[in-house]
Design a protein around this nucleic acid. Structure first.
Lengths: 293, 293
DNA sequence: CTTATTGATGAGATATATTCATACATGATC
DNA sequence: GATCATGTATGAATATATCTCATCAATAAG
């Protein structure tokens, strides 16, 4: 019944004083506006304006409609602007999932850049999932999962973003600190400080220690900073991404050592639903992620 | 760009779960909804929903649009209802003008009935005008003028509403109280209590005393009740509409006497702008006014 | 594997909106 | 008070938008 066009006409009429002027403002003919309102008046059985000399005067019904126009039109215009921003990938909520500690540490770096470049975007970070990050992605709890494991999954595509290497962190005066690389056996009698997750989810176990049948003592710790402090005090060793290890080498008496002769290389992937390939703000995140190398 | 139809579709989709169900709810085909949204998506260059299996899932943009729909649609529906009420003359503001004391007294009676029958109507009563009630009517400060003078005026039409007679009110023990009617001469030596307005605006002067060349002493009074009290105490006489006089005769020792052999007949008219002839709530007022006889 | 349900899409039919031409009304100007 | 400039109303023709129909594709259930 009442369409946006009608609100526009009533508003333009009030704004411009005459139908002719309103028609110009709307890039239509005076006739079009007259017909439109006449049609609406017939439907509503109420007149919205009266001729008063050669001007038009809004009736009480017309005044009501003008109020409504002033309430509704800005909402629609604002909505169109926001949708425009969505279209260009500038606005929205980026819902990210992270499952591993290195992912989270890397994300902290990249996020600052993302938020600076996308001022209208909000970001939600989810690290607790009922089952897994993948399940969260498929259930639409998140829209992008940062993960080192590109497990084949229907409807999900992976994009590599960031390459890094897992390294051993030891005290500068630790016996192992002279080596350029170490084998798994070298860790047999060390205390390995880890994050508090199942060993199956730690690459150093699945890809380095377990294949060699080595099972060092471990101690789970909540805070990475305290973990590194303890390493510096020769109270244990730990495994970190190389770029994090580098940072600690600057400020503390610790050293990073390659795990195995060829190192333990990893890649962080962005996993998104296939249907979301074209979504601007996801593309932008992946683009920035790739640049972080 | 975003039309009411689009909001309706998004809303119906969220409400009914599937496009087909939404289409039924809107009495349209599923095809129509699909085409509409597709067109909007092309214009906005943003997708509003995604197929998820054989259901549809709103995107973030779609969710935004749903929010807007939930904000805007009720406003438009409410507006249509109110306009419906306007159309049936049930809602609006009745802006009344009154210029004479009898008019005002009569209005008080009739207004209670009007407000009871028109619960959605507001009433404004204006009795102060820059120049005249007629000017107020033509300037749209009021929409209906209650007046005893049907002065011809272009663009204004009059409808008779209420007939009454002006009568003389005297104390029950006043010498004149025995008469069935009096002539103007009989008032020559009486003190005439009047409302505080120019004599030219009082019918008893213009239509009874002045034609006979009689100029009794007068005293202007603010309150009609006190005026009548003074009449009862033989401190003067006054002229009132017969229906008001009747009421006082019930409660006080006063008597009403006809002015002249044939009485001083008056009619209250409703004056409205010609352009407002079809306005429901004005018609209703005039209808009730006529019934008050 | 088949079937029922749901959404997408192109073509054609229908409905709606816009323009054009013109009539009508009004207020200003000479 | 006749003329002109300005503004609105309206019928008919045209342009545009919307809807339906027929059909395909995808999917979930039997």
């Amino acid at each position: 019944m009442i369409e946006r066009a009608h609100l526009r006409i009533i508003h333009a009429l009030a704004e411009n004083g005459s139908l002719t002027a309103a028609a110009n403002a709307l890039f239509l003919t005076q006739s079009a506006l007259s017909h439109q309102i006449r049609y609406l008046e017939q439907k509503l059985e109420v007149s919205l304006w009266q001729r008063d000399g050669r001007k038009l005067r809004l009736t009480q019904a017309g005044e009501l409609m003008l109020q409504v126009a002033q309430q509704v039109l800005p909402v629609l215009e604002q909505t169109e602007q926001t949708l425009q921003a969505y279209a260009e990938g500038r606005a929205g909520i980026l819902r990210l999932g992270v499952e591993c500690h290195p992912c989270y540490e890397w994300l902290k770096k990249i996020l600052a850049v993302y938020l600076r470049e996308m001022p209208q975007m909000d970001v939600d970070i989810v690290h607790q999932f009922q089952f897994s990050g993948m399940e969260g992605l498929l259930n639409h709890h998140i829209d992008l999962l940062v993960t080192p494991d590109a497990v084949k999954q229907l409807g999900v595509i992976y994009q590599p973003m960031f390459d890094y290497e897992l390294v051993l962190l030891v005290a500068a005066d630790h016996p192992l600190s002279k080596k350029t690389y170490i084998d798994a056996v070298a860790l047999q009698h060390e205390l390995l400080l880890t994050f508090p997750v199942a060993h199956e989810r730690l690459d150093v176990f699945t890809q380095f220690l377990m294949p060699a049948g080595i099972h060092p003592r471990t101690k789970a710790m909540q805070s990475m900073d305290i973990m590194v402090q303890m390493v510096a005090l020769q109270r244990g060793v730990t495994v970190l991404p190389n770029w994090l290890a580098m940072e600690f080498c600057q400020s503390l008496p610790v050293k990073a050592i390659r795990l195995g002769q060829n190192g333990l290389a990893k890649t962080l992937f962005a996993a998104i639903r296939e249907t979301d390939q074209a979504v601007g703000y996801l593309q932008k995140f992946i683009f920035l992620g790739k640049q972080s190398n």
